[in-house]
Design a protein around this nucleic acid. Structure first.
Lengths: 338, 338
DNA sequence: TTGTATGCGTTATCAA
DNA sequence: TTGATAACGCATACAA
């Protein structure tokens, strides 16, 4: 394919390289005729500017990066779609980067800021816990979407999230209200101050509120966030023959894996075992039965995240932590006992 | 955060920039002591090379790009995971690029080859039909994974795919063998020589083989590839009250949307309406009931695609088009009548 | 084994 | 409104 450079275009169009650059970047100060002439050559040659050179030299851009941690999370997919829309609506260019679970998102952000001259970062997945120093060094506008950074007191760093503790409590309370007492909880590994930790606290609170005790040893199982892992965890649990009537899964993906496992064991959802999930992804809605879940308001989180980021881009010292409300989405996976 | 350049590192370590460059690129010709000293400074400064500058200057790389067309396709997700593994196993660095449905993948490939000095491209989604000229101009090793490019006679361009016609025929034949006669087919828009076109041909063949006629006008409905779109299409169809006992959906995502729709209408899968899907994604396997489907051998396709690409990188004129076999994965969504 | 100098393709500065 | 030229940070040819 062609390998035209800006110099070639300039030569062919009979103008200077600066003029071509101006045309490309919608810069002003180019006459209509010159612009038309240059555009024609660009089209004809099918010229594509080299973004390496562009970003190497460029000192600013209109780029906002969305860094997604965890290669496959259906909930994040919904979020990415919404975030892109919002970023574009603000006149910025969204740049989505998917990184592995074990990569350092702040390091990645730093690189994108230096190399692409990104004006701000939105983190999806990943946590601001114990990262004050790194974030301080980053010294750039960033927003944690769907996870709270309120404990992280760094200027320029904001967050928009649900109250994980409250929402998990909402889920478990709904099960308790529906007459369930033997409730299994399936979640991820619990680290201090972690998102999973908060959801777990919500479980405890829901029980305590009723003067009941949650038996973590027997009724909490840890699983990875995949259909297959949740299926396996549930399968092992069922072999123990412990009497349960309901499961709270800390993600919808887990909820679906668990539902399938229950069904494969000849039990019925929700007649024998009720299931409530978390996140509110499309797959849960289309599952059979529809999975009752706590919906995170993805559109609202996306809108507010971008709004905060824009504010921070304008005022580097800005910082705000918003909590939005989740919603119990009733499906058909929870049996209400009378 | 730091903004060290290679010059800073060289200065601090008391060596020349070339030496630092050598250390960074695992180049030989650096003494152990010098290397250790340089590495220490790099670590201490947390230095990250600027990839713009790197790629701008670099004339070659070990990068293989995977260009994924269509932002959300669970089947492609499985493929990407496998492809990445294979590329890494060959000692190359996989670089995944997600592009929109309406973007030009060859233009994107061209850019990545120029800017990242990518040695080869794997296309996922997108088609080689009527793109001989563009691919010829691209003049680089590329492989179409999951869609055939056998009609596209360009050296350096290979492909690995199933025989869409044959596999669709396999699906419909299975329905016919199971005693179904009134079969609804749900697929995408059909263009000449397209993947959907081939699957549609398979449908026709399956019917013809039995001396039957497929009534496209009444029994083919077009839908987008999403749960919601398939649900809606099916919902409209059900209102017509046409007698059907089975549905062949040209993707698993569609199959799930259709299944949910059927269930929501108070009908049972497979007792009232049987459903067979296509692709073999995890979600179909975990659905209730498990969706019977035609599984594309993603691991095999990934392995062979990468193998072909490596061959082409070594011999630019190489070109081969492989057809792999799909497999009927029996779930519980098809009723077998006796 | 090591260092110096050049240029990759672009944007930014400055002068015309 | 235009163009010549100097960076941007790095890899590479070549010299030492």
């Amino acid at each position: 394919m062609n390998n035209y450079t800006i110099k070639d275009i300039a030569r062919i169009a009979g103008v200077g390289v600066t003029t071509v650059s101006r045309v490309l970047n919608n810069g002003y100060g180019v006459s209509k005729e010159t612009r038309a002439k240059v555009m024609e050559v660009i089209e004809k040659c099918n010229y594509i500017p080299n973004s390496n050179a562009k970003h190497l030299k460029q000192v600013t851009s209109q780029i906002v990066c969305i860094i997604v941690k965890g290669t496959y999370n259906p909930f994040f997919h919904d979020m990415v779609v919404e975030l892109q829309k919002c970023v574009e609506a603000e006149g910025y260019i969204p740049l989505v980067s998917y990184i592995d679970e074990d990569e350092n998102e702040i390091r990645c952000a730093n690189q994108l800021i230096k190399e692409k001259k990104a004006q701000g970062i939105i983190f999806l997945g990943g946590s601001a816990v114990d990262k004050e120093e790194e974030l301080h060094k980053l010294n750039s506008p960033c927003v944690y979407a769907t996870s709270s950074a309120s404990d992280c007191n760094v200027s320029g760093v904001s967050s928009v999230s649900i109250d994980d503790c409250l929402e998990a409590r909402r889920a478990v309370t709904y099960l308790l209200d529906s007459g369930h007492k033997n409730i299994l909880v399936v979640g991820g590994a619990i680290y201090q101050k972690d998102l999973m930790y908060n959801r777990y606290q919500g479980v405890l609170e829901a029980f305590e509120e009723r003067g009941m005790h949650f038996d973590k040893k027997n009724m909490y199982i840890e699983s990875k966030f995949s259909y297959a892992a949740a299926y396996e965890s549930m399968s092992s649990f069922l072999k123990l023959n412990k009497p349960i009537t309901a499961v709270f899964a800390m993600s919808d993906v887990m909820a679906i894996g668990i539902a399938k496992c229950v069904i494969d064991h000849g039990l019925k959802v929700p007649e024998d075992i009720s299931i409530i999930g978390f996140d509110g992804i499309e797959q849960a809605w289309f599952y059979n039965p529809t999975i009752t879940t706590i919906k995170q308001p993805s559109v609202e989180i996306a809108k507010k995240s971008v709004a905060l980021l824009i504010k921070t881009i304008r005022d580097k010292a800005f910082s705000q932590h918003l909590t939005v409300s989740g919603k119990l989405l009733k499906g058909n996976s929870v049996k209400v006992m009378s």
